[in-house]
Structures are given as C-alpha cells and as structure tokens.
Design a protein around this nucleic acid. Structure first.
Lengths: 348, 348
DNA sequence: CCTCCTTATGCTCGAATTGAGCATTAGTAT
DNA sequence: ATACTAATGCTCAATTCGAGCATAAGGAGG
C-alpha cells in the first residue's frame, strides 16, 4: 500500500523514456509542522487525528500560490487546521527522498508513475499551552510516545534493552567484517556505548540508525512490507509517512537550540516558577538537571525577573513567580540555558 | 489529490470551494550549492562564471527524477558542472519567497503569473583545495567580496562607516516613532552598536537588514528597479537571484558550526601547521584569534596529532606539521574549535 | 658572526565557569 | 509535633578562559 511510491521509483529507473527527459521534475511542496507544547513537564506534539487504523499524522498541507513565503504558507495551514496561532516558527529541514514514503499518497491514492515527487519542508513551532483548542480533529501526543528511547528523565529508558539487543543482532548480521565494525561504531556513537556519553542532541541520528536496522515500523512500510508482529522489535508508536523522522529532527534541533537561544520561554506561561522552567528544559532534553546549578545559570544570565507573586501550590515551600526578561535579547548575543545533565539522574 | 488528509481537515472548516481549488502549486526545485574552500587564509566560494554583464552565480540545477535524494541530486549537479568531488555536504535552508527573485525570471522574463514558483534548496559543501579544477566555467571568489562588512580580521572593516551612515538615514526615514525605534534596535543588535559585541554568526541577519534598508543591490532588482548609481550605497558585489542571501546563510552557519563540530578539517590539506589551521578558522569567522589559546584549545581537545614532519617555510621558526585525528569523532560528542575573538584584533 | 625580524612553542596567573553537594527555610499533610 | 516536599542560599574544588610574558629557532641583512 505505502509501496506505491516505490513502484514509481523503479519505473523511473527502468523506463528509458522517463530517464531521458531529464528536465526538472515537477514537484509539489508539502509544508509539515512539528508543533510543540510542554504541559506539566510533558512535551507534546500536535497531531491531526488520523482516520481509524491510520497512523498519527503531523499537520501539513501543500504550498499554494497565494502563500507569499514558505513560512506564511505554513502558518496559514496550521491556523486553518488547528485554530492555533503560532508564535515561534523555525525551518527544520527539507526532505525529498524518492524511496522513502513522504506521505502524500495514501493507499492507492497515488496516480500513475508520472505523479509529482513530494518534497516536504518541515517546520518547528513552539506554542504556549497544550490545552487550548478543543478541536476534535487534533490531539496533543507526548513526543516520547514516538521516541521512547529518548526519555532519560527517569533514568535509562526501559526500551533501550530491547533496542540494544536488536542492534547487536543487526551488527552481527552485517555482510562483511568492515561493515560489521562500522555498524558497531555507529551504534556506540549514537547510543552511548563504551565510554560515549549519551548525547541528547543526536535524536535524528538515532532514529536513522534504528530505521536502517529496521527497528522502525516505517522502514518496513517504505518497502511495502509488513513489519514483524513482535512488538518489542518496533519501539515507539509509528507515524504516517516520514513524520517520525521529522519529529526526531525537531527533537534534536530543539535540544540544541535551548542551549544558546532563549526559546524555552516560548513554551512557558507568562509567569512560572524556576522549577517549572527546569521541568520544561528537562522535558525537552530528556534528562534530569541539577536544580541549584540550573537556577544559578538562569539567574546569572538574568533571563528572568521576579513578578513579585508567589506560587503556593508547589507541594513544598512557596516559590517566587518569575517572568521572562525580554531585554536579554537586546543585551547579549546567544543567551540560552546551556545545561548539562546531572551525572546521576537520581539526584536533582 | 496530494494530501488527502489535509484537504479533508481543512474542508471541514472552510469553504469547500476554496478547499478544492487549493491544489498544490506546481513548483520546480532548484538545488543551489555554496562550495567553500580556504586557500592562503582566504575563504572562497565557487561561482559559475556568469555571462558578460551578468552577476555572479552559485552552481545550481534543478532536482531531477533520477536523483534519489536532494543531496545526491546536488552532488550530481556539482560534479557535472565543476568536476569537483564534494566531501562534506550539509543542507542549509529552503527558500521560496514569491516576491523575491529566485533567479529563474529576470525582470519581465517570467511567463504569466501561472509559471511554476521556484523553490531553492541551498546546500553548503566544504572542499579541500581551491586550486584544482582548471574549469574555465567556474571561478573561486573570496566570499568577503560579496559581504565585505563581515571581515574583521584586519580590524573594523572600512565599509562599515558608509553602511552605518546609510542605516542611520534609514532609521530616520521610518514612518513612525515606533518603527524608528525598532529599526534602531535591529541595527544595534546586528551591527554591534552600543555595548553589543559583534556576533559573527549573525551574518544572515545583517544581510537581511541591509536588504530591508535597500543597501543591497538585489533589493532593487527584486522590485524591478535599478539600484542607485552611488557605489558606496551598495556595499559588496552583487550576485544573481538570491544567491548572496544564500551565501550569507552559509557564512553564518559555518561560523557557528566550527565551534562544535570539527568541520574545519574538511578545509585543510592532509598535513598543516597550527597557524594554518588558525588562519582557516579566522578566515571563516572573520576575526583574529589569540594564538596561544587557540593552540591550547586544539591540543587539549586532541583534535590533531603530529605527523613528525616539519614545515620550514613559515617565515620564522619551523613548525610541526599536524594532521587531523579522526578518532576524536569517536571519542566525544561535539568536538570543535569554539574560539572567541581576541578583544584587540591587533594582538594575535 | 651578530642583530633583527618572524613565527613556534612553553608557561603562568588571575578571573570566570562548572559540577557537585551541604544546609537552611517554609510551606502542606499526618 | 513530625515527616515530606520544594525553595533557596552557600561552599568548594576542578576546569576552563582570557591575556600576556618568555624563550626557541629559523631566515635576512649587515
């Protein structure tokens, strides 16, 4: 079913006529959005509620002639589809792999071989609150549902054991010793083997590795195959087309970004406690942070100021409510929350 | 027909007619490459020699159906156009502004409004040596020819005086006081006014600001106007379409990248002295670095190892020749040359 | 050969940043 | 009162950073 595109691809290769008229191929541009919010310390992405039995989907739509720029096109689509106004928006990446589903053709919906190749331009957007829209067409999903191995907040994720076991198997299956070493090295690098620390920014690399090793259901779909029924072999919920890849890109990018730009505050309500801020940073980076050092950092950089109010619902001593101090943008280049995970995740 | 789910979703909310003729506009995808090399401490980009009287152009070509991915398409084009093999390649950005020339249509050259909108996907590539190809169709140009205000290696660039003068004028011309303050703030932030340090990574922001203020010849062209004849008002050599914007994107991105990934070595010959390495870093970042601290950094991170040879043509005491130590990639995440400009550019 | 110029390389020193953790405060729940 | 929980203040050592002094080792000019 998803395989329709694969047959397109092969027709391109085999049909000499197709190959000869090598002019620019007409394509359509699809704008896809990863819209992120963090509520109660849980990072969520907005999904368009799929039809029964279909995998989850990110909001997206084609670029239209009346869109002046890619970004305005994206905003238009999202605002229409979700009645959500986007604040911070950033371009993520442009994908156009011929052999990898890009989602425009549902089962049987693709035209004949001539159909335009789908190019998708992915965007990342941050919004304040998840709750808002009661739109029944959309749903906020914890992003770690799709990428469970990325969540180290409660220590090493359970899913990793099964994953690493499968990856060892994949390494062993390599056709020759050189490839075997390369695979092993790639696993070690991205999955923190052997003296490598876990690098939370490598979310995309990890996803791509799992895809190569066919631990990602989409890898099977893209080849027109049904994934093995063994659930443990397919960690995380799958998504339509390459949306999970786009999500992984967003996660990695955002994890990097918070370290040198104050984007964290795009996700916060107008007033918040320092712990809430910390929880948000942890939600994104997927790691626990050292509390006192986190505060020191935020305070020394003067990223926030007191509102004067207190939050009493903390479960402990009341906390000062803070607000973002927008002037920082005008003071230093590159302010951000460059935090390092605590060594021992238990602490905090 | 493209995105079934989107039109479904939107048709729920909006006028079905609108939704129906909301076909994706057909577009062509143009792959554009910023190919960078540094020779003798001068950063250069590969340009395709323009026809007489035409502005300089970056190598580019349309995405074709036989290209499996965007990146392979780009490599194919570049290898054909320049007989150059690309090593490091990274996607930069995708541009598709409707109102900004993207090169396919000169003034009046576009067909009727229906013509396909050009989308350009820009890539950055790093290569070892500029000299190589004797291809008469291409030329290596110092990138600061196009962005002279970005070169602070010999102190504050001369061009800045004229630029800032014009920008002051632009600020004063603002239609209302609020806009005036916003313009002033924007200038201060990007051009290091008033206690802001020069942030070399903001190359794109600076370019865009100059574009807004019409200090960039392309800003006039895009509106079908001839730029004023006053040369001082148009700093830097212009390029075709939005290629200078793409170049500015590349410069900013690369300046950021060298700080946390060892990409610098993609530009170096197999063996080099530490000073050559430093000159390369300086060439990219456009600033002078503190020599001893630079060596300390490179050595402490064990980015290089001695080859055992000496370079005697240094003009002074012979220097050890070094080579990149690729093992660093396997040791730590994010090794790089995160250097800060010396306060006083004279030192070194 | 001696002097000067140039670059290479070693080393120091104080300031700032970072990682980790102790201690105290101030609320709520039992 | 006692136990928990979270907020907040503070310390301390290790490391990193910014700046600069000092010395080494070549070549060029006298």
């Amino acid at each position: 079913m998803q395989s329709s595109k694969v047959s397109d691809a092969s027709s391109v290769k085999t049909d000499p006529v197709e190959a000869r008229h090598s002019e620019a191929s007409p394509v359509t541009v699809d704008l896809t959005a990863v819209i992120v919010a963090v509520t109660n310390g849980e990072p969520r992405v907005l999904t368009v509620r799929p039809s029964e039995g279909e995998p989850d989907t990110l909001p997206s739509g084609p670029l239209r002639p009346d869109h002046r720029t890619l970004q305005t096109g994206l905003r238009a689509w999202v605002e229409r589809q979700t009645s959500l106004h986007l604040g911070y928006v950033e371009q993520l990446y442009t994908f156009a792999d011929r052999d990898r589903a890009t989602g425009e053709c549902g089962p049987g919906m693709c035209g004949p071989g001539e159909s335009a190749r789908p190019v998708s331009v992915a965007y990342l957007a941050l919004v304040h609150e998840a709750g808002a829209d009661g739109d029944p067409q959309t749903a906020w999903r914890p992003w770690y549902n799709y990428l469970p191995w990325e969540d180290w907040r409660a220590g090493r994720p359970r899913a990793l054991d099964a994953i690493l076991e499968r990856l060892e198997q994949w390494i062993a299956e390599a056709p020759d010793p050189l490839k075997r070493r390369q695979r092993a090295e790639r696993v070690r690098l991205t999955f923190a083997g052997n003296h490598m620390p876990w690098d939370e920014e490598r979310a995309l690399e990890r996803y791509e590795l799992l895809y190569s090793a066919r631990l990602i259901a989409e890898a099977w779909h893209d080849q027109g195959l049904a994934p093995p029924s063994d659930v443990a072999a397919q960690p995380g919920r799958d998504m339509a087309a390459d949306h999970r890849r786009i999500l992984a890109t967003a996660v990695g990018r955002l994890r990097g970004k918070i370290k040198y730009r104050p984007v964290l505050f795009e996700l916060m309500p107008p007033a918040f406690t320092l712990l809430q801020l910390q929880r948000t940073a942890e939600a994104l980076s997927g790691a626990r942070l050292h509390k006192q050092n986190f505060r020191r950092l935020v305070e020394r950089q003067r990223l926030v100021e007191e509102t004067g109010e207190l939050e009493t619902e903390t479960g402990g001593r009341p906390a000062k409510l803070m607000r973002f101090r927008p002037e920082v943008m005008l003071e230093r280049p590159a302010p951000g929350v460059r935090v390092k995970a605590t060594r021992r995740a238990s602490l905090v």
